[in-house]
Write a protein that binds this DNA or RNA. Structure first.
Lengths: 215, 215
DNA sequence: TAGATTGTTAATCGATTAACAATC
DNA sequence: TAGATTGTTAATCGATTAACAATC
C-alpha cells in the first residue's frame, strides 16, 4: 500500500484530472456508512465507462474484491495520497482582484491541505484590508516572507501584464510551484513547476459545443 | 473562408483549448501593427511544437504564405468565429458566492460576447445587492426571466448540493447550455449542453507535478 | 538562388474501449 | 452454482511528433 521508497509511479494526466471527482463520490459513500464501492457505481454517477474507472483505480494500487468492489476508506486514503491532499502545505496568493479574493474565500483549499499564509497586492489602497480573513500585504515584503517561511506554493491571480515580473520575484524567493490563473505564459527555470488554469479554454470548448449542438 | 452552409467542421477539443492562447498572442501582434505571424512565432511564445500550431491553424481554414506566415487579422477573425466570440449572447449567472461574484466582475466575458443579463441567488440577504454592476435577483423569478428573454446560457456557481435543483429550473426554463463551476455532475436532457469546470482537477495535477518534480 | 516557412503524409505515442479470463 | 465484479490483454482511436515535399 505505501509508496515504494525512491520509485514514484507516473500517473497519466487524464487519470489525475478524474481523481477529484472519484474522491467526491467515494466520500459520499463513506458519509453514508457504505464500506464498499464498485467501479460501476462510480462510472454510473459520472457517466463514465466502468472499464476506464477500473483502470484508474488499479493505478491507485488499491485492490478490489470481485462481487464486492473496492474498500471505500482504502480508496480515499490512496487517492488523497496521490494528489497530495493528505499533508499540509503553505501557500501565498498574489493579486487580490476578483478571482484572487474568491480563491481566498474558498474553503476547499484548507480541506485539501493548502493554507494561505499570506496574500499580496501592489495596490496601496488594498494593503491592510482583510479579504476572507487574510490581511493583504504589500508586494514589497513578499520575497522575504516566502524565503523566511520557506513557502513552496504560489497562487498567481495578477493581471497578465504583471505576471512575469511577479513570477521573477517568486522564483527569486525560492518558490517551488506556481499555480497560474493569469493567461500569460510564464518563463521559469526548469526546477519550478507551473500549472496554467485558463478559464477561456473552458469557455471556448463550451461555445463550440453549443454551436455544434444547435445545428 | 466562410463556413459552408449546413456542414460544420468537427474541431478536436485539445485544439479548441489552445485557440484562446493563440488568439491572445496574435492580438498582441495586431496591436503592435504587425501584419503577419508564423506558426513558429506562436509556438515559441507558448513553448509548443511549431508543427502542432501549424496543424491547428490549418484547421481554422486560414492559409499561410510560405516565408511570411499567416495574416494576423485573418487568423483573429477565423478563431473568433470558431469559438463564437464574434457574436453577442446573453447569459444568467446563478449563485453569487465568492466565485460567482468574481465572474460577474470579470471584464473578459463581455469582450467575448457573453453579457450577464441577470444574477440570481437564493439568499434573501443578497437580493437587491449590486455585485459589479449587477443587481442580485431572487431565484423565484429566474424561470420566467430566462423564458421571456430567451436566454440560452447559464453560468452555474451554486454550491454542489444546490446544483441539480437549480439545473432542473434552468432546463425547465429552456436554457440551451450550462457552464458548470460546481463539482456536481448534472443530469440534463440530451439537448442541453453542459461544460464542467473543475478547479480541483487543476489542483490535483499541480500537486502531482510538484511531488514528481521534487524527487 | 538559398532559406524560411507552409502543408501534407507517415510514424509514434498514449488513452480509451473491447474482449475475456479469473474470482468470490 | 450463477452472476456480478475485478483485472488483464488486445484492438481501436485520436492526437502528437517526425519527415519531407512544395512554395515564395
Amino acid at each position: 500500500m505505501e509508496i515504494a521508497t525512491g520509485i514514484r509511479k507516473k500517473y497519466p494526466v487524464p487519470m489525475i484530472r478524474r481523481l477529484p471527482s472519484y474522491l467526491r463520490i467515494i466520500k459520499s459513500y463513506s458519509y453514508g456508512g457504505i464500506e464498499y464501492i464498485s467501479a460501476t457505481d462510480i462510472a454510473n454517477e459520472l457517466g463514465y465507462d466502468s472499464v476506464k474507472v477500473r483502470k484508474d483505480l488499479a493505478l491507485t494500487g488499491v485492490c478490489g474484491k470481485p462481487r464486492m468492489g473496492y474498500k471505500v476508506d482504502e480508496l480515499i486514503r490512496a487517492i488523497r495520497s496521490i494528489v497530495g491532499w493528505d499533508k499540509n502545505s503553505e501557500a501565498v496568493l498574489v493579486g487580490t482582484g476578483c478571482l484572487g479574493s474568491a480563491l481566498l474565500g474558498f474553503t476547499g483549499f484548507s480541506r485539501r491541505g493548502i493554507n494561505f499564509a499570506a496574500a499580496f497586492d501592489v495596490d496601496p489602497h488594498k494593503i491592510g484590508m482583510t479579504v476572507h480573513g487574510h490581511t493583504v500585504m504589500p508586494m514589497r515584503g513578499m520575497k522575504n516572507f516566502i524565503t523566511e517561511r520557506k513557502i513552496e506554493i504560489a497562487v498567481l491571480t495578477v493581471p497578465a501584464d504583471a505576471a512575469q515580473e511577479t513570477v521573477d520575484i517568486l522564483v527569486d524567493a525560492g518558490i517551488k510551484g506556481i499555480w497560474n490563473f493569469s493567461p500569460a505564459i510564464l518563463k521559469v527555470p526548469a526546477r519550478v513547476v507551473t500549472q496554467n488554469e485558463n478559464l477561456m479554454s473552458g469557455l471556448a470548448v463550451f461555445m463550440v459545443k453549443m454551436a455544434t449542438e444547435s445545428v
